[in-house]
Amino acid sequence: GEDESTNESKNVSADKVEVIELDVNNWTSSTHHYAYNVFEPWKELVEEKTDGRVVVNIFHGSALGKSSTVYQDVSGGLYDVGLIVANYFYDTGFFPYTVGNLPFAFEGPEEAASILQEFGDKYAKDDLTDIVVLGPTATDGYDLFSTKPIKSVADLKGLKMRVNGKSEIAFVQGLGGVPVSLATEDTYEGLQKSTIDTAFYTPIGAVGLKYFEPAPYITKLAVSVTPIIPIINKDFYDSLPADLKTIFDEELNPKLTELITASYETELESSHKELEEFVKERGEFITLSDEELENFRLLGEEAWTAWINDANDKGYPGEEMAQYLFELLEEAGYPIPY
């Protein structure tokens, strides 16, 4: 309390107000929708709301670090703000959020954002004290990008399917595929070089990353979303003057999450159209029958069981967590996965 107010008065009395720099690492390219829908508008907002006292530097293209090490990098101070892909941190305190990646848990980012917030507050928040965790959100529903046409579960037998983290392994095995673990940034080349035959990916992201080039067979599944959690370096956050901290808490932090959610929501429809157009001549945009979709849905249950077991092994109350999630979904009027 007192220390902060003296700091503040010092800053104000000095002729030059000290400018605080905030480094954001965007592990996607400068042309990705994160860049123009999320980071650039957020930068403007931050600089406007803080009257230029905070200046945001955006580094695109994984310049400051890869997506696979965001947690280490932000907690260690390589940069101040980054986006956690929950599945890459299955072994850490971010584990509870990986529930969102289970098959048919959420249909879209808005649903995921509202439910994961409560879920995370109950099961994850207490363990994540070395960074500041902002509101979680998620990508749009994943479709299946493949180098061969996939029209039924049987078509997947023996194919090398990219998994994005441990929670997908059981599902992929249930589908009859062979799980291959690859980072997002290696996926395009993996498809091209047949390191993998298929990848579940967000249709929006896939437009930007051009997955339809090596994998022109797209099966519309919305199988799962990937939880995305923005985090801030703790030292940076603690060093903010009290008034700025309030601005971040009340406006800027929630806004970052909202921008990500909105980016996925707004771009989904156009992406599907674009993808359909792109693959018209070289591949196929496949919509499954309800019956076939149900087959995929049923095979998802194995992944839930595996996740619950993992949760129990890690000392979390696995069954209770799944139950709590289903309650939240029901309360909010969303369908439950199985």
Binding site: Y71, Q72, D91, T92, V163, G165, K166, S181
Partner: peptide
Amino acid sequence: HMQLSTGL
């Protein structure tokens, strides 16, 4: 503490 392990 952070007991990381490979994905597969």
